[in-house]
Design a protein around this nucleic acid. Structure first.
Lengths: 343, 343
DNA sequence: GTGAAAGCGCTAACAT
DNA sequence: ATGTTAGCGCTTTCAC
C-alpha cells in the first residue's frame, strides 16, 4: 500500500552533471541565464538518467498545478464528448492537463466536486453543461478565489464567467426559417428540457422566425423532450394523438429528430414526403439516418478548444475580463425536408 | 501570471484549534488515535476556516497522488465514452480522480502522454483502446515501475496487464449464430480494422459459427471497416458491386450496420425484407434506427467500473496478480433480422 | 552565470 | 493521545 516512487530527483541530476540543483531547475524550466555549455551538460545528464520532474513538488513550490478541472453533465450526448475532445487537445498544447471532475452528477453534487477539484488546486474549471441552475454561488466563490470558470452550453445572465457557446437563438431561427422557406407554416417543435439555456434559446429563435413570417405561435404544437431519442419519439406521439395538423417538425437535437421520425413512421407518415423534419447538432448518425437528416451543425470541437484557450488565457492573465464568444450554427441540407404541398 | 493560492493551511487550523499540526493531520486522515473531544475541536476549526488540504503537498509527503491516468482513443465512439463514464464514477467512490491523458492521439504519441502522466505521478493507468499495437514496451516499463496498467478493448497476448473486456469471440459467434438460426447461410460481415483485437475476435466468432453450421467461409463476403457509419456504407457498396449473393450481414458495430443499411437501401434492397442485418454495441441509436436494429449489447459502463475497481485494487495491493475478466455480450432482438426465404 | 538557503504544506517516524 | 523533528522534490530569493 505504501507506494514508492523510486524516481530520479533533481538532486541526482545535479550531481551527475556536476552542477547545483538550481541550474538543473533552470534548464528544465528553459530559463535564459544558463551557459549553453552547462545547459548541454545538464540535458545530457537528464537524458542519461531519464529524469522526469515531479509535478507535485513543482506545484507545491511554484503554486501552479498546471491542471484544469472539467465538469460535464452527460457523456452520452455526443456534443459534450466532442467539446471534451477539443478541450483536451487544446490543454495539452499549452502544457495543461484536465482532471475529470464528474460526468453525470446531479446538480446538487456539483459543489462537492468543485471542492474536490479545489483541493487538487486546479487552476481553472471548464463547465460543460446545459443549464438547470438557479444559483451559481459556488462558482462565483470559486472565481472569487482566483480560479477562473469558463462555461459552455449555458450561462447565468450577469454572472461574470467567460462563455463560449453557439448562438442558439440564431440556430433555432435558421432551422425554422429553412422550414418556412420551404413553404411550411404549421411547424411542430420538440425542445430540450425547459431549464436548459440552449433549449430556451432555440425555442426563442423558432418563435422569432414564426413571427417574422406572420405565423401565430401555437403552443399545442410544442413538445418538451429530454434530448434522448426516446423523448422525441414520445413528444411526437403526444402531438399526433391530439390530432393536430402540421407539416414539419423542428427538433432541437438530432437524436430527438430521429426518435420523432420513428414515431411518424409508425403512424404511417413518411419523412419527408408527408412531414419534413430538421434536427440540430449534425451528429455523425444524422447523415446515416433515413432519410439523411437536414440539421444545424454545431462546431463542438472548436468550442471545446476555444473554451480551453480562454480558460488558460484567464489563468495566465488574471486581469483579463470575462467575455462571451458565440459561434454560429451552420445549416446542413440533406433529405429530410421537402417543400410543402397540401395533401 | 504568478498565481496565488491564498488558502488556509494546516498550520492555521492547528493554531485555531490550539493543537499541533500533527493532530490536525490525524483528524483529516481519520486516524483513530485522537481523543474524541480534540477531534471535535479540530473539526470545528476546519469548518470555521473552510480548510481544504492541499493535495499536492499531501502527495509529495505521502508519495500518493490518488490520481489515475486515462488514455483512450476515440470519444466519438459511444462505447469508449460509456466506459469512461463508468470509470469516472468508480474512481470517485474510492477517492481517486482521473487525469485525461489523451483521447485521440496517434499510437506514436502514446509514450509521450504516458510520460506526462508519470510526471504527474498517476498511481495507475487505464487504457481504453482497440488495439493496433505491436509493442507495449512503454506500458511494460510503466508497470515495472510500480504503476499498474489495466486495459479494456485490447490485450497483448502474454502481457501482464489486467484486462477487462467483452468476450468478443462469443459475441461474434452469438451474432452469426442468430443469423444462422434464422436460416441464413450466405452471411456477409463487416469487420472493424484488422489490427483491433475486438475485430479479430468477432471475426473468429463469426468463422466458428459458420464452421459449426457447415458453412464454408467465403472471404469475398468480408469487408473491413473503420467502425464509422461511412465505412459500413462503403463496405457494403463494395460487396454489392461484386454481385455476390448474400441474405444477411453481421456488422461488427452498430454504426457500420446503420451505414450498411443505407447502402442497401440505395441499391433498392430493404432491411429486413431482402437482407437481414445484425449489429454490435447496442448504442442508443440502434433502437431508433429504421428498422430497429438487432444487436449485441456490451455492458460498457460496467466494464469501466470493473476496470477501475481492478486498477485501484492493484494499486492498493501491489502483490495482486493481473487477471482477465470477460463479460458476455447479450443478444438484443429487434426488427432487422427476418427468417431466410429464397427470392 | 551559478550556488546557497529557505520554504511550499503536508506526512512519517519517532518522541513523550 | 499528542507534540517534535525531518524531510518529500522542487522553485524562489538573494547572494556571489
Amino acid at each position: 500500500m505504501s507506494k514508492l516512487f523510486p524516481s530520479i530527483t533533481i538532486k541526482q541530476v545535479a550531481q551527475e552533471a556536476g552542477v547545483s540543483i538550481q541550474t538543473v531547475s533552470r534548464v528544465v524550466n528553459n530559463r535564459y541565464d544558463v551557459a549553453p555549455e552547462t545547459r548541454q551538460r545538464v540535458q545530457e545528464a537528464i537524458a542519461r538518467l531519464g529524469y522526469q520532474p515531479n509535478a507535485m513538488a513543482r506545484g507545491l513550490a511554484s503554486r501552479r498545478s498546471r491542471t484544469l478541472g472539467l465538469i460535464t453533465q452527460d457523456f452520452n450526448d455526443p456534443f459534450f464528448t466532442q467539446v471534451t475532445t477539443g478541450a483536451e487537445q487544446e490543454a495539452h498544447e499549452h502544457g495543461y492537463f484536465f482532471m475529470l471532475g464528474s460526468v453525470c452528477c446531479e446538480k446538487e453534487e456539483e459543489p462537492k466536486y468543485l471542492r474536490l477539484l479545489t483541493e487538487r488546486h486546479v487552476e481553472g474549471v471548464l463547465l460543460i453543461r446545459g443549464g438547470g441552475f438557479d444559483d451559481a454561488d459556488h462558482l462565483l466563490k470559486l472565481q472569487g478565489h482566483g480560479v477562473p470558470v469558463v462555461t459552455t452550453g449555458f450561462y447565468l445572465p450577469g454572472a461574470p464567467f467567460t462563455v463560449i457557446d453557439v448562438d442558439n437563438i440564431d440556430g433555432g431561427w435558421q432551422a425554422t426559417r429553412h422550414l418556412i422557406d420551404n413553404g411550411h407554416r404549421q411547424i411542430a417543435t420538440i425542445t430540450g428540457p425547459k431549464n436548459w439555456k440552449s433549449a430556451q434559446d432555440r425555442l426563442q429563435g423558432y418563435c422569432k422566425a414564426l413571427a417574422e413570417a406572420g405565423i401565430d405561435y401555437n403552443e399545442t404544437l410544442l413538445g418538451e423532450g429530454s434530448w434522448h431519442h426516446r423523448s422525441g419519439y414520445g413528444a411526437i406521439q403526444a402531438i399526433l394523438s391530439r390530432n393536430l395538423a402540421f407539416s414539419a417538425i423542428f427538433a432541437q437535437n438530432d437524436r430527438m429528430a430521429i426518435g420523432a421520425i420513428q414515431a411518424l413512421r409508425q403512424h404511417g407518415l413518411q419523412v419527408p414526403e408527408n412531414i419534413s423534419v430538421i434536427g440540430y447538432d449534425d451528429l455523425p448518425e444524422a447523415e446515416f439516418a433515413s432519410p439523411a437528416l437536414s440539421t444545424l451543425r454545431q462546431p463542438a470541437v472548436e468550442i471545446g478548444q476555444a473554451a480551453t484557450r480562454e480558460l488558460i488565457h484567464q489563468i495566465e492573465s488574471p486581469e483579463a475580463a470575462p467575455r462571451q464568444l458565440l459561434y454560429n450554427a451552420e445549416l446542413i441540407v440533406r433529405n429530410s425536408v421537402l417543400p410543402y404541398r397540401s395533401m
